Simulated scan of single mutants.
Amino acid sequence: MNIVITEKNLSCDTQAFSAIAIDLLDAGRTLRFTAKGGSMDPLIRDGDTLFLAPADPSRIKFGDVVFFVNGGGKPLIHRVIKTQKRGKDRWLLIRGDRANNVDGYFPPSEIFGRVIAVERVGQQIRADQPVYKFLGRLAAWRSRVFSASPRLFSLIYQLIKRIPSFKHYLS
C-alpha cells in the first residue's frame, strides 16, 4: 500500500496501512492511496487512486463505497449493498462488486471512511456525480439481485457501457 503524505509515498503492509488510515480518518483527514485488487472492477480498478474521507455513520447509504476492516483484520474498500434495522440499530451489508461472497453485516460505527473520488489516468471522478452514483447503485443491485443471473447482468452492463455518458466511468 502507498500512502501520500505531503507529496511523499509511504509503503507499508496492510496492518500498518489499516492503523495509519484509521488514525488519519479519525483525525478528520482525507486519505489518498492506490487501490490494489479487482474486487470493485470496473468502477474502481487495480491501480486507481482513491480518495477517502472520514465516514459519518448516519450518512452512509446504499451504494456507497466504504473503508472498513474485516474480521480477519484486512482493510477493504467495498460497497454497501443493503441496510437493515436490527432493533434500534442500522447494519450495513457489504460486498465487493466482483466478489463472490458478501463481507457480512457491519454497524456503521465500524466504517472508517467513504470513497469520495477515484482518479484514473490523470482524471478525477467524484463519487457524488449523478452518473457515478447511479452506476454505484446499479452495482449494489447487481450484487443483491443479479448474483443468481450473471449473464443477465452482463448483457445489461454491455448495453449501458455503450451509452456515451457512461463510457467515461466504465472504459
Rank of each mutant, 00 (worst) to 15 (best):
Y105L: 08
R90Q: 12
R86F: 14
L92V: 08
P42N: 04
G38F: 15
A27F: 01
S18N: 11
Q84W: 03
G87R: 02
D41H: 08
D64T: 10
G71I: 05
D13S: 09
H78F: 07
P75Y: 06
F17S: 00
G104W: 12
L92Y: 07
N70S: 14
I60M: 15
R95P: 04
S39F: 07
D89Q: 14
K74A: 11
G96Y: 03
G37P: 03
K36E: 05
R86W: 15
F68Q: 15
K36H: 04
S58F: 15
K36N: 05
R98K: 12
D23R: 07
T49A: 02
T49Q: 08
R86T: 02
R95Q: 14
G37F: 09
N101A: 10
T30E: 13
P54N: 03
A16G: 00
L43F: 13
G47R: 03
C12K: 05
I44S: 08
I20H: 04
P75H: 13
F51E: 03
F33G: 03
L25Y: 10
G73D: 01
G104P: 04
R59K: 15
L52P: 04
R59T: 12
T83S: 09
K61S: 12
D41M: 02
A53K: 09
L24C: 06
P57K: 01
D26T: 01
D23P: 00
Q15R: 10
R95N: 06
G96W: 04
R79V: 05
G63A: 01
L92W: 07
R45Q: 06
A35Y: 06
A35I: 01
A53M: 05
R98D: 00
A55D: 02
T30Y: 15
L52D: 09
D56Y: 11
L93S: 14
K82C: 07
F62A: 04
G71N: 10
K85Y: 02
V65E: 01
F33A: 03
S39K: 10
I22A: 07
R98M: 14
R32F: 05
S18E: 13
Q15Y: 02
Q15S: 07
L50G: 01
H78R: 06
I81Q: 14
D56W: 11
S18Q: 07
L25H: 10
W91Q: 13
L50W: 14
G63I: 03
I22R: 08
K82Y: 10
V69C: 09
S39E: 02
D103G: 03
A27E: 07
L76Y: 13
A99M: 11
R86H: 14
G47I: 01
F62K: 05
F68H: 15
G37D: 06
G37C: 12
K61G: 08
T83A: 06
I81P: 08
V65F: 10
I77M: 12
D48G: 00
S11N: 10
S11L: 11
F68D: 15
F51Q: 07
F51K: 08
D64M: 08
V80A: 13
L92E: 11
D64E: 11
G47Q: 05
T34A: 08
I20S: 10
L10G: 00
L31G: 00
K85R: 09
G47F: 02
R29Y: 00
A27I: 00
I94Q: 09
